[in-house]
Amino acid sequence: MRERAIDLALLHTPPEVNDMFKQEKILTEPVILAMPKERMLLAPGPDDLNGQPWIVDQENRNPPARARLLAACQKGGFRPNICLEVSGPLAALACVEAGLGFIFIQKSLARIVPDNVALVSLPWLPLEITLFAVWRKEETRPLTKRFLATLGLY
């Protein structure tokens, strides 16, 4: 964006606030627990999740997201036993389908979950996915302005 190669970005982790860019939260979505049906927990609490094998996104893909995940788990009263790191939610779902562990996914992915994967909401867990729009403060391109207006940001 600094080099004007792109005009707008949709990010889970926005850049540090600075004089060059504007950013606005455009979506917040709850996170749900996905687990293999053969290891399904009906109403899991923190103690039930301790010791379970966890699949997470590779830390180098988004360190702030990993930090938010671990902080939410700690606040929720458990520590995930990370056994496998993958690249993205679809790879993680495939691992759950294979019975390799538990994951957190955004609720909108529930519609693509395989039949042998169980889902459960954890109202006690303070974790959600947030999406931010980021653009240059002095945006002049008409198409970018129109897109921002569609999002209600311009």
Rank of each mutant, 00 (worst) to 15 (best):
L8M: 15
L8Y: 08
L10C: 08
L10V: 03
L11M: 14
T13Y: 12
T13D: 14
T13H: 13
T13E: 11
P14N: 10
P15K: 01
P15D: 01
P15L: 10
N18M: 09
E24G: 05
I26L: 10
L27T: 01
L27W: 14
T28A: 13
E29S: 08
L33C: 12
A34C: 10
M35C: 09
M35F: 11
P36I: 05
K37M: 10
K37H: 07
K37P: 00
E38F: 15
R39V: 05
R39G: 04
R39N: 14
R39S: 14
L41G: 03
L41C: 05
A43V: 07
A43C: 07
A43M: 09
A43F: 12
P44Y: 14
G45L: 12
P46W: 08
P46Q: 03
D47K: 14
D48V: 09
D48F: 15
L49R: 01
N50Y: 06
N50V: 07
G51R: 01
Q52G: 10
P53S: 07
I55L: 10
V56L: 04
N60C: 11
N60D: 13
N60W: 12
R61G: 13
R61K: 11
R61H: 13
P63V: 03
P63T: 00
P64Q: 04
P64F: 14
R68V: 13
C73W: 05
Q74L: 10
Q74D: 12
G76Q: 06
G77K: 00
F78P: 12
F78D: 00
F78T: 01
F78L: 06
R79C: 13
R79Y: 13
R79S: 15
N81P: 07
N81T: 06
C83N: 09
S87R: 13
G88D: 01
G88W: 04
P89T: 02
L90Q: 04
A91T: 00
A92W: 05
L93C: 10
E97Y: 09
A98N: 04
G99P: 05
L100G: 06
L100N: 08
G101V: 02
G101F: 10
F102E: 02
F102A: 07
F102S: 04
I103D: 02
I103N: 04
I103L: 04
I103S: 10
I103R: 01
F104Q: 02
I105H: 00
Q106F: 11
Q106T: 05
Q106E: 12
K107T: 04
K107Q: 11
K107W: 11
L109D: 01
L109G: 04
L109A: 08
P114N: 07
P114K: 08
D115N: 13
D115I: 13
V117A: 05
L119I: 05
L119A: 07
V120R: 08
V120W: 09
S121C: 13
L122C: 08
L122H: 02
W124D: 02
L125N: 02
L125T: 00
P126N: 05
P126Y: 05
P126Q: 03
L127Q: 00
I129G: 05
I129F: 12
T130K: 04
T130N: 07
L131S: 09
L131V: 09
L131Q: 05
F132E: 00
A133Y: 04
V134I: 03
V134H: 01
V134K: 02
W135V: 02
K137V: 06
K137R: 14
K137Q: 11
E138Q: 10
E138M: 09
E138L: 09
E139C: 13
T140V: 09
T140L: 06
P142E: 06
